[in-house]
Computed example of a mutant assay.
Amino acid sequence: MSGSSGGSFGGGFAPEPTCEKILIRTQLASPVPDVIDDLRTGDVLDVVLGGPTGPLTAQTNDGDVAGAILISNPASLINCINEGFEFKAKVMDITGGDCQISLYCSGR
């Protein structure tokens, strides 16, 4: 008698991460020089959604826009923000006018 082995299910697509697990590393687009000059590695910026569908920006605690956030799949991040999740952008590196950030969920 032969037994059956368990099969695997799935369509070959990785599921989208839940809002709490989103972690995206990217570079600020159109960085604002006067704001970037005052940032240091480790600073944390607010991720702000300008309207129901965007744009996404990174802002200081004073509300100064450091730059735009352009990512390959903004819909998932925008949906999470519209559902009440808050996101932060941690400054990972600043080289000249380039600012590398890491986006993460900071709560609901």
Results as ranks from 00 to 15, higher is better:
residue 70 L to M: 12
residue 60 T to K: 08
residue 92 M to Y: 04
residue 3 G to N: 02
residue 40 R to F: 09
residue 39 L to K: 01
residue 80 C to Y: 10
residue 74 P to N: 08
residue 32 V to Y: 06
residue 14 A to S: 05
residue 95 T to E: 09
residue 33 P to I: 00
residue 16 E to Y: 00
residue 76 S to E: 12
residue 22 I to V: 06
residue 103 L to W: 05
residue 53 T to F: 08
residue 107 G to V: 07
residue 90 K to E: 15
residue 104 Y to M: 04
residue 60 T to Q: 09
residue 69 I to W: 03
residue 8 S to D: 10
residue 2 S to L: 13
residue 85 F to N: 15
residue 31 P to C: 02
residue 28 L to T: 00
residue 2 S to C: 06
residue 101 I to P: 12
residue 17 P to A: 01
residue 17 P to T: 01
residue 12 G to V: 07
residue 71 I to E: 04
residue 23 L to K: 06
residue 72 S to Q: 06
residue 96 G to L: 12
residue 105 C to H: 06
residue 58 A to Q: 13
residue 30 S to Q: 05
residue 99 C to I: 03
residue 11 G to T: 06
residue 57 T to S: 12
residue 67 G to V: 08
residue 105 C to K: 07
residue 39 L to W: 03
residue 31 P to I: 00
residue 73 N to E: 12
residue 5 S to Q: 03
residue 87 F to E: 00
residue 34 D to C: 05
residue 29 A to E: 10
residue 59 Q to N: 14
residue 49 L to V: 14
residue 96 G to K: 01
residue 108 R to M: 13
residue 14 A to M: 13
residue 4 S to T: 05
residue 19 C to T: 03
residue 56 L to K: 11
residue 64 D to G: 08
residue 104 Y to E: 00
residue 16 E to S: 13
residue 72 S to E: 07
residue 61 N to G: 12
residue 83 E to C: 14
residue 28 L to A: 05
residue 20 E to N: 07
residue 30 S to E: 03
residue 15 P to R: 01
residue 87 F to M: 03
residue 5 S to C: 02
residue 49 L to N: 15
residue 21 K to D: 12
residue 30 S to L: 11
residue 30 S to W: 02
residue 36 I to D: 04
residue 93 D to C: 00
residue 21 K to I: 01
residue 13 F to R: 14
residue 42 G to D: 01
residue 67 G to C: 09
residue 98 D to G: 09
residue 66 A to H: 07
residue 46 D to T: 10
residue 63 G to S: 08
residue 45 L to W: 13
residue 48 V to K: 08
residue 15 P to C: 00
residue 89 A to N: 12
residue 26 T to R: 01
residue 61 N to L: 13
residue 108 R to I: 12
residue 68 A to V: 04
residue 29 A to M: 07
residue 74 P to M: 09
residue 74 P to S: 09
residue 59 Q to A: 15
residue 18 T to H: 04
residue 54 G to D: 11
residue 1 M to Q: 11
residue 58 A to G: 09
residue 86 E to T: 15
residue 4 S to P: 10
residue 9 F to D: 05
residue 52 P to K: 02
residue 23 L to Q: 07
residue 21 K to M: 05
residue 30 S to M: 10
residue 4 S to I: 03
residue 4 S to K: 04
residue 70 L to Y: 10
residue 5 S to R: 02
residue 64 D to K: 11
residue 72 S to F: 07
residue 60 T to R: 09
residue 8 S to G: 01
residue 58 A to P: 06
residue 31 P to D: 01
residue 32 V to G: 13
residue 97 G to W: 08
residue 89 A to F: 14
residue 16 E to M: 08
residue 59 Q to T: 11
residue 27 Q to G: 09
residue 90 K to R: 15
residue 90 K to S: 14
residue 38 D to N: 08
residue 3 G to F: 07
residue 16 E to P: 11
residue 95 T to H: 13
residue 56 L to C: 13
residue 9 F to G: 09
residue 52 P to L: 02
residue 80 C to R: 08
residue 66 A to C: 11
residue 29 A to D: 08
residue 19 C to A: 06
residue 73 N to V: 14
residue 93 D to T: 09
residue 38 D to I: 11
residue 64 D to P: 04
residue 47 V to I: 08
residue 13 F to P: 00
residue 93 D to S: 13
residue 48 V to E: 08
residue 90 K to Y: 07
residue 3 G to L: 12
residue 34 D to P: 00
residue 63 G to L: 13
residue 43 D to F: 05
residue 57 T to M: 03
residue 93 D to R: 09
residue 51 G to S: 15
residue 94 I to N: 10
residue 18 T to V: 15
